[in-house]
Write a protein that binds this DNA or RNA. Structure first.
Lengths: 232, 232
DNA sequence: GATCTTATTTAGACCTATCTAAACATATAT
DNA sequence: ATATATGTTTAGATAGGTCTAAATAAGATC
C-alpha cells in the first residue's frame, strides 16, 4: 500500500533522482530549487513532507536522498517520460527537440494501462531517444547509460552526439520553459543526435569549442555537460 | 488575451456545456455538483469565480450559462477528449469501454501541437467514437449529433447502439470513477456500439426493457437516456 | 579561531479547491 | 396562503503548494 504522491511530489522525486545521477551523494535544496524553478523555502517544506511520507531521507542542512519507495516513483515517472518521448517521435512525427516539454507534462497523467500500451507499441524498449535508458516495467532495474558527456572530452577528439539536455544543472536560472528554445538553437548549429562534432579546444571556465559542417561553436560548460556523446 | 482557466475550471466549463446539451436552459448547481462529484457549496464558489473571469453568466439561484469565452474552452476540452478517445481506440488498440477515463485526464494536458498531430493522424475527423461530434479546430462549429436516445424510443422499435454514456445526469451519486465499470457491464449484456437491440416495453418510472442475442435486460431511465442510438 | 559569505531553514502570508454545518430562497402541497 | 420540502448560498475550516523576509547554520577566509 504505497503512500500517495501528488503530481508535484512526483516531480520532486524525479528531479532528486536525476540530480543524484549527475552528482553522487545527497541532493541539495538549492539544486532542487533551481531544477524545479521554485524558491528554496518551498523546497525545504516539500522535503519535510516527502520525508514524512517515507519517500526520501532528509536531514536538515544535509540534503535529501531517495529511499526505496521514492526511487520507485522516480523511476516510474522517468519510464513514462522516456516512453512518451520516444512514442511521440516514432508515431506522431515529432522532432526530437520538441518532445521534452510535452513529456514533462504527460508523464504524470498516463495510466498504467496506457504506459503498457505505449511500451508495447514501441516493442518494450530498454532505451529511449538516443540511448537514454528506460527503467523496466517492474521498476527494479535500469540499463546502464553508455554515453559520456561532451564536456568531459579533450581537444582533438571526435564524438557522435547521442542526446541533448533532458536535464540541466548548474546554470543561474533554468526553469523548464527555456528548454525547448535552447534545443532548437542547438539543432540549428548542428548539435543533433547522430551527427558528429570535433572538439577543437577547451577554453578557460570549461568553455568548449567544437566544429562540424555548420562551422565552429563555443558552448558553456553547463551546456556541454548536458550533451551526451559517444566517442568515435 | 484569454483569461487563464485552471484544469479544474476547464472541467467545470466542459460539464456545464455537456449538461446544457442535454437540458436546455441554465445549468443548476446540483446537476453540476453531481456531475463533478463535489459538494454543492464547492460549485457555488466556483461559479462565482468563473463568472468573475467572464467565462459564464451566473445569477444566484438561477444557475449558470456559458458565454463565448467559456464555450470556447469547453469546446476545446471536448475536442481533446474526443480526439484522444478515438486515437486510443484506433492506434493503441483500446476497447471503446476503457477510453473515457483516460481521456478525461489527458484532455487537460495535451498541447495544441499534440492535439494537431493526433487530429492529423486520424485524418482531421468531424466525428469521434460512434458519431460523437468533434468541435472544429477553430472552436467555432460542431457537427450536429444525429443520434437519438434509447430512452426516447417506444416498444417494438429496433435501434442500433451508437455510443454509450460519455456523460451521465440524474442519478443519485455518479462520480467519474464508476463509469468504466458500468460501461463494462453494458458491454457484457451486449449494449455495444454497432449492435442492435429491440425495445420490448417501457415500464413505469421510465424503466425500459430491451432484448438482443444476450437475452432481455431492463435499464433504468438515467441509463437509457445516456445511450445514443440510431433507428433502423 | 573570529569573521564574513553563502546556503538553508523558520515564520508568516496567500491562493486554489475542497469540505461541513447552518442560514436562507424557491418551489410544492395542502 | 401558509407550511413543508428541496435546492442554494454563506460562513468558516482545511490541505496542498507556493512566496518573501528574516533568522540561523555551515563553510570559507584571513
Amino acid at each position: 500500500m504505497r503512500e500517495h504522491a501528488s503530481d508535484v511530489m512526483q516531480d520532486y522525486l524525479k528531479n532528486i533522482y536525476l540530480i543524484n545521477r549527475e552528482n553522487e551523494g545527497q541532493v541539495s535544496t538549492s539544486d532542487l530549487a533551481m531544477k524545479m524553478g521554485v524558491s528554496a523555502p518551498t523546497v525545504t517544506s516539500m522535503l519535510v513532507k516527502l520525508g514524512d511520507k517515507g519517500f526520501i531521507t532528509y536531514e536538515k542542512y544535509k540534503g535529501a536522498k531517495l529511499n526505496t519507495e521514492g526511487e520507485a516513483i522516480a523511476l516510474e515517472i522517468l519510464r513514462h517520460h522516456r516512453l512518451i518521448e520516444r512514442y511521440l517521435v516514432e508515431f506522431l512525427g515529432y522532432d526530437w527537440s520538441e518532445v521534452h516539454e510535452e513529456a514533462d507534462v504527460l508523464e504524470h497523467h498516463i495510466s498504467e494501462e496506457l504506459e503498457r500500451r505505449i511500451a508495447n507499441a514501441l516493442g518494450n524498449p530498454k532505451y529511449g531517444l538516443y540511448g537514454a535508458p528506460i527503467p523496466s516495467e517492474d521498476l527494479t532495474s535500469i540499463a546502464k547509460d553508455e554515453t559520456t558527456k561532451l564536456g568531459e572530452h579533450s581537444a582533438g577528439e571526435i564524438v557522435v552526439i547521442e542526446r541533448v539536455k533532458e536535464n540541466y544543472i548548474g546554470s543561474e536560472n533554468a526553469p523548464r520553459t527555456r528548454d525547448s528554445e535552447e534545443l532548437q538553437y542547438l539543432a540549428e548549429i548542428g548539435i543533433i543526435p547522430g551527427k558528429q562534432v570535433k572538439i577543437e579546444s577547451v577554453a578557460p571556465f570549461g568553455m568548449i569549442k567544437v566544429s562540424n559542417e555548420k562551422g565552429e561553436h563555443s558552448l558553456p560548460k553547463e551546456v556541454s555537460m548536458s550533451i551526451h556523446v559517444r566517442e568515435i
